[in-house]
Amino acid sequence: MSRALRIPGSKGQKEVSQDGRRRVDDENGAMVEAPRMDGLSSGRIESKVISVEEAAALVGPGSTVMVGGFGLVGSPLTLIEALLSSENARGLTTISNNVGEPGKGLGRLLLESKISRAIGSYFTSNPDVMERHLDGELEVRLVPQGTLAEAIRAGGAGLGGFYTKTGVGTDLAEGREVREIDGELYLFEKPLRADIALIRAHRADTLGNLTYYKTARNFNPDMATAAEVVVAEVDEIVEAGTLDPEHVVTPHPYVDYVVRAEITLGTDAGPLLDQAGGG
C-alpha cells in the first residue's frame, strides 16, 4: 500500500486562523508521494530518512511551521538553512519560542522576508523582530512561555484547549474568556497545531524514535506531536532496534521524516550564548 501525502500549504489559497490551524482547498492541495512504507507489511522496516532538500520542499507558501529551540539551542539549523534557498518557503507563520537570534536560525529567515507572522513567547532578544513588526511586515502574537508549550501539547493531544492561571489580570488576557474554577480565575487557551514541525533531536532510529541532548530538548518533544508532518533533524541515525526503548523520548509514530544535521551549535557559538534574555 502506498499512501499519498499532501505537501502542507504548497498551493492554493488558504487562511490561517488564530490558533494556527489552516484551511486548504482540497482540490488545490498538492499531493506528494511519501516514502514507501509498504515494507512494513512484509515485515521489513522502511526507513524514514530523507535528504535535507526533500525535507525543505515540504514547506510551502503560507505554511504554519513549528520550529523547536530555545534561542538557537535545540533549533533545527540545517533545515532552517535549507529553507533559505527554497522558493516555496515564504509567507510563513512560525510557532517557536523566539525568532532565532539576530541573523541566525529563524532570524535569518526573517531577514529574507520569509516570515510574515510569528507566534512565540520572547522576541526581545532579536531586535530585527521589533524592526519588522514596526515596519508592518511581521505580525506578532505573544504568548506566555508555559501557555505556548501547553497549547502545543494540547494540539498534539487532541484537546480543545485548557484553562490556565497564567496571565489572568494582565494585558495578555484582553478579550479572552475568563472562568472561575473552585474560587480561582483561569484564562482559556486554544490548542496550537501546525502544517509542519521542524524539530531537533540527538539520535533517531530509522523508524523515527528520538532521544534528545541536554537542554536542546525544550519544545521539540511537544512540537513532535502537534503538526500534520513532523521532520526531525538529528546528530546520529541508527538502525531500528538499537535505541534502548526506556530511553526513547519521542516514540516513532509521531515522526514522519528524519534528516541528518549538517549544522550543529559548536563551542564557536559562544557569542550566541552571551546574549542574555531567553525569557
Binding site: G71, G146, A149, N218, P221, L265, T267, L273, A276
Partner: peptide, 27 residues
C-alpha cells in the same frame, strides 16, 4: 553550547540533574 539556562548562559549538571520538555517544565 547545548547546556544553557533561561538566560542562555552556559551551565553544568549538578548531582541528580534531569532534563525534560518545555511543557513539562511549565507544568
Amino acid at each position: 553550547p547545548q547546556l544553557i539556562n533561561a538566560g542562555k548562559l552556559p551551565v553544568t549538571e549538578d548531582v541528580g540533574a534531569a532534563y525534560f520538555s518545555s511543557s513539562e517544565s511549565f507544568a
